[in-house]
Design a protein around this nucleic acid. Structure first.
Length: 635
RNA sequence: GCUGGUGUGGCUCAGUGGUAGAGCAGCGCAUUCGUAAUGCGCAGGCCGCCGGUUCGAAUCCGGCCACCAGCUCCA
């Protein structure tokens, strides 16, 4: 007999050789049916694994992240099996589970089409119906190489060759299909129930554009059909929040064929944008920042000096003025350097915090453009902090606090990443080491959780990035803090120290919104276009019931306008229902319905876009209410 | 940039070789109405662009452009 310790701490005895599936079934009938995979002494394993000694055991179902991943990964094997059956000779690359599903990459001379996906899906359903068990086979390295080589699976051979010498190699077989795989898997294909192939895309082998492009099939799967349907409905719902769609519907901005990646801001988009910038200026002023503005075009010499000419050329736009080379700025920092350099600085002045809402242009590949999220010109809410090396940590913490405060005002959750030295970088390893550990130190003293992205830093320094989510859960980098020892060197920046000698300051580059454009995209999707009152392009719309109420409506509008409330009057010859419907569609926070009663008493009947009719109140009472919401930036 | 898909009035979409359609929006007229669509009428389209095939092209072929999804890359 062996002793098994379960998740709740209880201990049960089983005869040696009992499988985990048996253990699950003995705990409860439901767990026996729903368990997908087990954890034996901390390691995820198949349910078919037998008990050999005393152990701790846990089980995972589709309700757990681990269970879902195994479930989707197993589905990807079924996808590969269906594809190989339909198109013999296609070679397999990799097929992992991803956030909401899985994919499999194939190398095939034949191009997949959407019609083929349907056939593949039917093939998968047949395999699921056959309820084939997933069988694990541990293989000796040489044998596995021989096996996949004989099958012509050159990608699998490459994968095996790249595994460390002592790595255990395993394959999984279901029916007549065998794939290289570490596992674990669900017990049999019948568990997979409801599958759907969602899209088709190209993907480079091992993610490098130097390699061959393979065909990637994306899909998802669920243990119940109703769950799949819910999932698809959720995606449809999320698409309604897409900032590109809402941007057009709410008339915030447009991107036209005449300028791919160069957005046009319309009056309503500008109202929102100006609020963000006002907020930004107020907060930065409060925190000791000064504001500057630097030119969009500067000459070649300067870009050579900054390192951009060498390290950033592919992303820059160029022009000639009087036969000389100039570049359009892709970053604001060099301009900031020149401003710092324009006069002497004493150590007493440091830190100097210099902000700039700077318009930068970057050449992005056509395929990556995405509404306001990824554009070719955008405004960074930039700032450069010049300081003594000893001030670095506190300044970084100050920026972390600033970012956290800003995002909390909008109700955003964010993720933090730390990016380290890239391949193409300026400066010595020691300096990079020091900069990176300073950033890490600051993060740790704030007790922040973060992920490390090796090699993702800027060419002049490591960075802390803040990521926000869009409507489909894709994340976008917004805020960033970069510590830079290179630029001050390149530009020979100095300050006069206590000793009367010149010393080298260090600097921070940082943005909070990141790009105002991207931030507006994220905001739009986050609020589904129903912006908080302080940001709403139109804060109230006045709706006279009939023509005879227009005069009073005008008076109400003027009163609100006098308080700098963004207000519109809908004096069209339409029924109130129609006007309300339209104002709701525009997601205007407050609608003021005005008829005989209101005109007579000097009141307004207030309708809120989510709460609905909230009754009549005096005009002044309404003014006080909306002004308070604006002032407190109520979400 | 790469792979696949899409491109028809302001918007959403029909239209598979033979005279370009609908709904919504817009405009006009009537209606003067109390919390999510009043009725009638009128306008509006080099069918993304260029070229080819054909007696004839929105429709078939080629090239280009833009957009969508993904890859690579980044705020």
């Amino acid at each position: 007999m062996v002793k098994v310790t379960l998740k709740d701490g209880s201990v049960r005895e089983y005869s040696e050789g009992t499988t985990l599936a048996g253990v699950a079934a003995s705990i409860s009938g439901r767990l026996g049916r729903e368990a997908l995979v087990g954890k034996l002494d901390g390691k995820l394993v198949d349910l078919s694994t037998p008990l050999k000694k005393d152990a701790s055991v846990e089980f995972y179902t589709f309700d757990d992240e681990e269970g879902r991943r195994v479930f989707r990964h197993s589905t990807s094997h079924v996808l590969a099996q269906a594809v190989q059956k339909l198109f013999p000779g296609i070679r397999l690359a990799i097929g992992p589970a991803i956030a909401d599903g899985y994919y499999y990459d194939f190398d095939s001379p034949e191009k997949f089409t959407p019609e083929m996906l349907e056939k593949i899906e039917s093939g998968m359903e047949a395999i699921i119906k056959a309820d084939l068990p997933f069988e694990r086979m541990d293989m000796e390295r040489g044998r596995s190489l021989e096996f996949f080589d004989r099958a012509g699976e050159n990608y699998k051979v490459e994968l095996i060759n790249d595994l460390p010498e002592d790595a255990a190699i395993s394959c999984y077989r279901q029916g007549d299909f065998t794939d290289l795989c570490a596992g674990p898997h669900v017990p049999s294909t019948g568990r997979l129930k409801s599958v759907k192939l969602t899209s088709l895309a190209g993907a480079y082998w091992r993610g490098s554009e130097k390699n061959k492009m393979l065909q990637r099939v994306y899909g998802t799967s669920f243990p119940k059909k109703s769950m799949l349907e819910e999932h698809l409905a959720r995606i449809e719902e999320a698409k309604k929040r897409d900032h590109r769609k809402l941007g057009a519907e709410l008339d915030l901005f447009s991107i036209q064929d005449e300028g791919p990646g160069f957005p046009f801001f319309h009056p309503k988009g500008m109202a929102l944008r100006n609020e963000l910038e006002n907020f930004w200026r107020e907060e930065h002023h409060r925190r000791g920042y000064q504001e500057i503005r630097t030119p969009v075009i500067l000459n070649r010499t300067m870009w050579e000096r900054s390192g951009h000419w060498d390290h950033y050329k592919e992303n820059m736009y160029f022009t000639k003025i009087d036969e000389l080379d100039y570049a359009v700025k892709p970053m604001n920092c060099p301009g900031g350097m020149l401003v710092y350099k324009s006069r002497l600085h004493s150590y007493r002045d440091l830190p100097v915090r210099m902000g700039e809402l700077g318009l930068v242009h970057r050449h992005e590949l056509s395929g990556v453009l995405h509404g306001l999220m990824r554009v070719r010109c955008f405004t960074q809410d930039d700032a450069h902090i010049f300081m003594l090396p000893s001030q670095a940590k506190d300044e970084i913490i100050g920026v972390i606090d600033l970012v956290d405060y800003f995002y909390s005002v909008f109700g955003f959750k964010y993720r933090v990443e730390l990016s380290t030295r890239p391949e193409k970088a300026m400066g010595s390893d020691e300096v990079w080491e020091m900069a990176t550990s300073t950033l890490e130190d600051a993060l740790q003293s704030k007790g922040m959780e973060y992920k490390v992205n090796e090699g993702d830093g800027a060419f002049y320094g490591p960075k802390i990035d803040f990521h926000l989510e869009d409507c489909l859960g894709r994340t976008w980098q917004c805020g960033t803090i970069q510590l830079d020892f290179q630029m001050p060197e390149k530009f020979d920046l100095t300050y006069v120290g206590e000793d009367g000698q010149k010393h080298r300051p260090v600097m921070i580059h940082r943005v909070v919104f990141g790009s105002i454009e991207r931030f507006i995209g994220i905001l739009t999707e986050h609020f589904a276009g129903a912006f908080p009152v302080w940001l709403a392009p139109v804060q109230a719309r006045v709706l006279p019931i009939t023509g005879r109420h227009v005069e009073y409506a005008q008076k109400v509008m003027e009163r609100l306008d006098g308080e700098d409330i963004r207000v519109e009057l809908d004096d069209r010859n339409e029924k109130v229902n129609y006007k309300i419907r339209e104002a709701q569609g525009q997601k205007i926070p407050y609608m003021l319905v005005l008829g005989d009663r209101e005109a007579e008493n000097g009141t307004v009947a207030v309708r809120h876009r989510t709460a609905g009719d909230i009754g009549s109140m005096g005009l002044e009472e309404f003014v006080a209410r909306i002004k308070d919401e604006i002032k407190t930036k109520k979400i």
